[in-house]
Structures are given as C-alpha cells and as structure tokens.
Design a protein around this nucleic acid. Structure first.
Lengths: 219, 219
DNA sequence: CCAAAAGTGTTGGCGTTACACCCATGG
DNA sequence: CCATGGGTGTAACGCCAACACTTTTGG
C-alpha cells in the first residue's frame, strides 16, 4: 500500500446581502477545460500554509476583505472520483462579508438561484446555505453582513433576508438587545427626512453563541 | 510555487456510553517516537478511497461496528506545524456506537477526563464532545448509543448522561414520543422482578433533525 | 405641516415544567 | 406479599407572539 499524497484546495462560499437578497460570489472559467462553467472561488493551499490562512488569503484576493469578514470551515470533500482533473482534497469554507466592498473578482448571484456549479461545488453551496441558516438561529454570525456601525433596522433587515420572512419590530429589538450581542454607540445616522437612527456595533464581549442566553428564533 | 501534496489521515472520536458515563476509545503508542503517548484511533486514507469510507473502515477495524454506527465528519486540521512527523491533512470524524460490542482495539476513557493527547488530538476530542452535546439538543444522534431495540428508560438514561442532569420521566416520554423519532415494537423486555418494559426502535421515517418538530431540549 | 422611518409596552395563549401514584412482575 | 422499575395526567407559570401609536427629522 503506497501512501496517497494529494494537493489540498480550499473552496469558498462567499456570502453577502445585496439588493435585499442573499447572494454568493461565483466565478466563470475563461479557459478549457469547462470553459464558461461556474465555480466557487478557490485555490491551492501553498507550501507551509495552514488551510485557514489559505482561506483568508483567497478571500482577500477575491474581495479585498480581511479581518472584518467572518470565515468558518464548512466541510471537507475527499473522494478520488470527485474532480476529473485529478485526485485532491477540497476543504470548503464559507465567508460572510458586508456588501460595502467594491472590487469583486467574480460576480454575485442569488444564493438560492445560482447556476449549476462544477464538480462538488453545488454541494458545497448547499451546505453553506444550510449552515448559514442554522447559525442564524443561535449565533451572531448574521451581524457580519453589516458594517462596523449599523442601525437596528438594518440588523432586522439581515435577519428577514436570511429567514425569508417579516419580523415584528418591537419583538426583534427587545430580543436582540436582551442578548447583549450589540451595544449602543454615541453616533446616530441621519438619512432623508426621518428621525435619526441610533447606531450600534458588535458588543465588546461579543457573544458568538446566543444559546446560553436563549435562542433568538423562532420568533 | 510548487504544488503541495500531502498524505491524508482520518482520526476518529469514537463515543460509547459505558458505566453510566460518556467514554471515548483511545490508543496508546507502543513504539517510539512518543512511546506511551495517548492518541485517537486513526489511519491513512488509501489510494482510491473516499475519506468517508476510510473513516468507516477504521471504525470497523477498531471496534467491529459497521452500518449500525453513526459517523459524521467533524473538522479538518491542515497546518504544516501540527504533526512533527511531517506535513499532512487530518480529517476528523466522530462516531457513536452502542456499548454492546466486545473486541475493542484500544481502551475506553471518560470523555471529559481523558489523558492528554498528542498533537491536535486534544482539540479533536473537544470538538467532538461539543458537537455531540449540540446534536443532543436537536437530533436523534443520541439514539445511536443504543441497540436496535431499547426501552424508553434507556433512552432517558442516554440523554441524562449526555446532558449531565436528571430528567423528569413523564415529560421526557411525552416529548420523545411526540417527536416521532422512535416507534413501538411488539416486544417487551423482562429483567428481574419488575413490570416488563415495552421495546422501541428508531422510526422507519427516522427524522434526523428534530427542529422542525420543535427542539427537544431545554426541558 | 406632511411624509417617512425610528422608537416604545402590554396582554393573551400556549408550551414547559413541576409533581405523585398505580401497575406488572419475579422471587 | 414485597421490592423494583414501568407506566400515566394535570395544573401553574413564564415566555413568546401579536398588536398601534408617538417621536423626530428634512423638505
């Protein structure tokens, strides 16, 4: 039995909320083989590089985001029949970024209506969507879709997109504040002819899991 | 930039409930280097073998269990500095087996009081315990600690061990039955001078996630 | 002064928890 | 007949969901 040695890839599901819907960054191959096919952004892990760092490196290459993005390992695909180009291991990650960036390497698509993806990438996307939905219920990951400072209405908007339903404003605000996941700033935002909105940021204590304090949803 | 090619390992956290506590199967090295050090059971993924199959193969080698065991991927560790013997990728799995097997390759230890493990294996164990606790709250994974047929008291016992607290018998039975995760058989079990206990099995429909039907815990 | 978004409390219903006794059996 | 684990119903409480109006601002 000879030892099997394979290259290691990381593949990324990069989520953002744009145009009021959950979107993912995809990439279209410009060369054969599979010219024109849609793929997830990804790349090979380099010599001496941990996979987590590779994921962040590739995220930065594709979107410009660094620390402010949330990155989490999703699942590892390791099946010799998976990729026709050869045997490899694919460690999938998902990332949550705020939509305020500009220079994307790729194009965003509605996550639930994405084109067919090559190889196992469709499975990766499905798992990413599923994990994100799960985390929406008991973690503060959804807050990473927002910029450093945000209004509670914006937070509610993120949750409404992720949960795909309307939420009650009073109940939502009471609950998100009770969880102590966000804290007031001294700033407010004024846009248009409205009452200004108080701005919030992630709590310094920043509880990642909401479970201990009760689950955020169902509402 | 030369492509980095590495061997792929799978490492397993094998859980069983024995002596009224959660235990894991560990293995003690008999040769240098690190003679006497404790490790998780594991092995290399072979040529042409998917990682999931490798995990089941190694589980069978170490415990004799096959289909009846629950196996789930946990996390992948990929860091060149992780293992002093060389660069590799370690895909960690956890497995849940009933304690009724016999020929273990290794020894069982209380999961929360395990000896110090080599390399990243301590992290793997911690993640395994954590994942198992999480799944206890909203999945039927804990039922895999039991044999094919089991009494509701046995089910309650498993949950009490995993949650580390006593549960109310009437509330527990009402809830586990409402979830339709188990179904009655025609058999009963008689042991000692007691009323016989009805035996149950996993439902044919076998809902894996309990969420849709409401969360099982908190009680 | 008007339009538009921000912000704020209370109540009823339902689900969860707490709780105690009878049943069936083997020895 | 007794010891042991199996099996069963109800009532109080607390949390969740539903619901409407006032405030602040820019134009």
């Amino acid at each position: 039995m000879t030892l099997r040695k394979v290259p290691v890839r990381v593949d990324l599901v990069i989520f953002a909320i744009r145009d009021g819907e959950l979107q993912v960054l995809l990439w279209q191959r410009r060369e054969a083989p599979l010219k024109g096919a849609w793929t997830l952004p990804g790349g090979f892990v380099e010599q001496g590089e941990p996979a987590d760092e590779a994921a962040r490196r590739i995220l930065k290459e594709k979107t410009g985001f660094e620390e402010q993005a949330y990155v989490e390992q999703l699942f590892t695909f390791c099946d010799p029949k998976m990729d026709p180009r050869g045997d490899l291991v694919s460690i999938a990650y998902y990332a949550v970024v705020s939509a305020s960036g500009e220079s994307w390497d790729g194009t965003f698509h509605a996550a639930r209506k994405a084109p067919k993806l090559v190889f196992h990438h469709g499975q990766v996307l499905d798992r990413g969507i599923d994990r994100l939905r799960t985390k929406t219920e008991y973690s503060t990951v959804p807050l990473r879709f927002l910029d450093d400072e945000f209004t509670l209405s914006e937070v509610q908007g993120v949750y409404e997109v992720l949960l795909d339903r309307q939420l009650d404003k009073r109940n939502f605000r009471r609950k998100i504040l009770a969880l102590e996941a966000v804290e007031e700033t001294d700033d407010e935002r004024r846009v248009g002819a409205h009452r200004p909105a108080r701005l919030y940021r992630l709590s310094a204590s920043r509880p990642y899991l909401l479970k201990e304090k009760g689950i955020l949803f169902p509402f």
